[in-house]
Design a protein around this nucleic acid. Structure first.
Length: 586
RNA sequence: GCGCCCGUAGCUCAGCUGGAUAGAGCAACAGGCUUCGAACCUGUGGGUCGGGAGUUCGAAUCUCUCCGGGCGCGCCA
């Protein structure tokens, strides 16, 4: 409908150019917006104010000329000039009724479009280190990334969801050592557990599995484990140095094969847990991409070689540096350490280069906001490699700050003191969690009051929307129970009976849905859809309270039932895109 | 110190990329079930859009500058 009006205005402008009222070289992008106030009609344009200067007359005068040249259209009842020079368009009633027909014909597909057709987009999100279960902070990235991906799919993109598994770094070695030390404790050794180790209960669980599988075969005396290991922090040492030495001892004492066994058990157990967690949250990935595989395939080496060839690499202090300052980064970055190991950044360069090589038209990274300083160096690397970094979108999700009992709750995977995503899901339910996370735009800091979310979850607007859906389903059930007939065709033929203002409002809202989906997808803003659904539910509830649907007049009843079904369908479609269920009763 | 994000009603947040009288939800107050589900609806009160300057027909929105809060600035990942 919007496009139809743009066409009409364009024709009017062409007409003005033809009779010389407007210079032929005036180019304007015609902006048609939905009005906020019904008194201003259904759509409005500011085109006259935009072009007044170049037309050499006042905005209102120009607006009048445009209106005079406007071709007749069955959709349009009138166009009037208002305020400083707005042109307000009033739609014919039957043009708004047409949306019901649309929705009933398209069902699940209503709101989907093809603007992304033929384009492939990759969305990488969560990608938390597999060193422990996901916590509530990860939940926001999960819910947000999933909704962005689903929205993009809805508007026609071919979407590839991916989880980047950091299975090669030092953190994983710390996990492996933590597991082994707990295992030794289970064997009966007395271990002074390192401050920097992972202390969560899940580490005990993995250690228990390890013990079940191996008995005491991987046991070494606690004396031998700590030979040559410097003091831990509480004893006046450095906790980082301490844990690194412990890792080295673990590797020495266990040997490659057994160390690997401990390492893999820890990683695979946690990864499987994360995968199950996310699946239960309604999130399924097309790919779990291993950092280690990049190293083994030579992709990292290859990327470093390509960087060297680009001339933006130099050696200093025994390390290899990427001169990212050539591309606007604050400082240069190490890609190969003086001990010969490549850095995480080196892997990430290879990973991003590889993403683009896979042929995606767009690559989206969803990161926690604490990684924002990382963006310039990744872009720098892509530019140095000659890749098009404009294809990369990095979406930064601000932290969800947790409050418990009115106080900020601390989160730390190391200490094991955190609320897991799973705990949250079980407390407030998947639907409320998915919706709550996505209600705010991602760059907004989010206060997550755990007590409120847990104890008073009925305050969550998700129930308001779901209730609207359930109510409409209930009406359909009532129709059957009362043995009333329903004829969809008769309803379609009677849509002109839907003259109540509540009905008009509802139809207008329904017609807006495809625009909302499109905008939410393109701007990566699922919160727009969340807010729309709340408004739509409001229209439904208001209508429900003001009018009885199951009236005796079967023409009116069928018309209303068609509207009811259309509204139900749109609520269901929208909730689905946010990963929230649309219950038929609750 | 430098960089990114944020500041809108008592609280939590929208505000459609510069438009018309700044909006919702909680909270407060006053009403509405014998009728399709009251997890709902109707109404009332509540604002220096952090402060100041600039850009123009027009600014919560864009620019600058202060103030306040969050995060980041490793040969960690």
């Amino acid at each position: 409908m919007k496009n139809a009006i743009i066409q009409l205005v364009q024709q009017a402008l062409d007409g003005l150019k033809a009779d010389g009222s407007l210079a032929a070289d005036v180019e304007a992008s015609i902006n048609i917006e939905r009005t906020r106030d019904k008194q201003h009609g259904d759509f409005a344009s500011n085109i006259a104010m935009m072009l007044a200067k170049s037309a050499g007359c006042s905005p209102r005068e120009l607006a009048q000329k445009i209106v005079d040249k406007l071709p007749a259209s069955p959709d349009l009842v009138k166009a009037e000039i208002a305020g400083p020079g707005f042109i307000n368009f009033f739609l014919a009633a039957d043009s708004s009724q047409r949306v019901i027909e649309d929705i009933l014909a398209s069902t699940d597909n209503y709101g989907r479009s093809a603007i992304g057709k033929g384009k492939a987009v990759q969305v990488e999100f969560v990608s938390a280190n597999p060193t422990g279960p996901l916590h509530v902070g990860h939940g926001r990235g999960a819910a947000y990334g999933a909704s962005v991906a689903d929205l993009l799919e809805a508007v026609g993109f071919k979407v590839h969801r991916e989880y980047y598994v950091n299975d090669a770094g030092r953190q994983m070695d710390i996990l492996a050592s933590s597991v082994w030390l707990r295992y030794l404790e289970l064997c009966g050794e007395e271990i002074a557990f390192p401050v920097n180790g992972y202390k969560g209960d899940y580490v005990w669980d993995i250690a228990a599995t390890l013990h079940r599988q191996n008995g005491d075969n991987l046991r070494h005396s606690h004396e031998s484990v700590f030979i040559g290991v410097p003091e831990d922090e509480p004893d006046g040492g450095d906790k980082e140095v301490h844990i690194d030495a412990l890792i080295a001892r673990a590797q020495e004492l266990l040997g490659d094969k057994h160390y690997r066994q401990v390492f893999d058990l820890g990683m695979e157990t946690i990864l499987a847990d994360i995968r199950r967690d996310l699946e239960e949250f309604g999130i399924v990935y097309q790919d779990w991409y291993s950092e280690r595989s990049l190293m083994h395939s030579g992709a990292v080496e290859n990327a470093i070689e390509r960087l060297k060839m680009s001339g933006h690499v130099y050696e200093d202090n025994g390390a290899l540096w990427f001169k990212s300052t050539d591309f606007g980064d604050e400082k240069d970055r190490v890609i190969v350490r003086d001990n010969g190991q490549t850095t995480y950044f080196a892997s990430d360069i290879a990973y991003h280069a590889e993403k683009l090589e896979r042929g995606f038209d767009r690559v989206i990274d969803v990161w926690g906001a604490d990684h924002h300083g990382y963006v310039p160096r990744v872009r720098a690397a892509l530019q140095a490699l000659g890749d098009d970094d404009a294809k990369l979108d990095v979406l930064l999700v601000q932290f969800a700050i947790l409050y418990r009992g009115g106080e900020k709750a601390q989160m730390s995977t190391r200490s094991g003191e955190f609320v897991t995503l799973r705990e949250l899901r079980h407390e407030v339910g998947n639907d409320a969690a998915r919706f709550f996370y996505v209600m705010r735009k991602c760059e907004q800091h989010m206060d997550f009051d755990l007590d409120l979310a847990k104890s008073q979850s009925s305050d969550n607007p998700v129930y308001y929307i779901q209730y609207a859906h359930a109510r409409l389903c209930s009406v359909k059930r009532q129709l059957l129970e009362k043995n009333l007939s329903r004829d969809i065709g008769r309803g379609q033929a009677s849509l002109s009976l839907l003259t109540e203002s509540h009905e008009q409002d509802l139809m207008t809202a329904l017609a807006k849905y495809p625009e909302v989906v499109e905008k939410a997808a393109i701007n990566h803003e699922p919160h727009q859809l969340a807010h729309f659904l709340r408004d739509l539910a409001n229209c439904v509830h208001t209508y429900y309270n003001a009018h009885v649907f199951l009236v005796d007049d079967e023409n009116l009843r069928d018309a209303r039932m068609n509207l009811v079904e259309a509204a139900r369908q749109v609520l269901a479609n929208g909730l689905k895109l946010l990963g929230v269920s649309a219950p038929e009763s609750m």
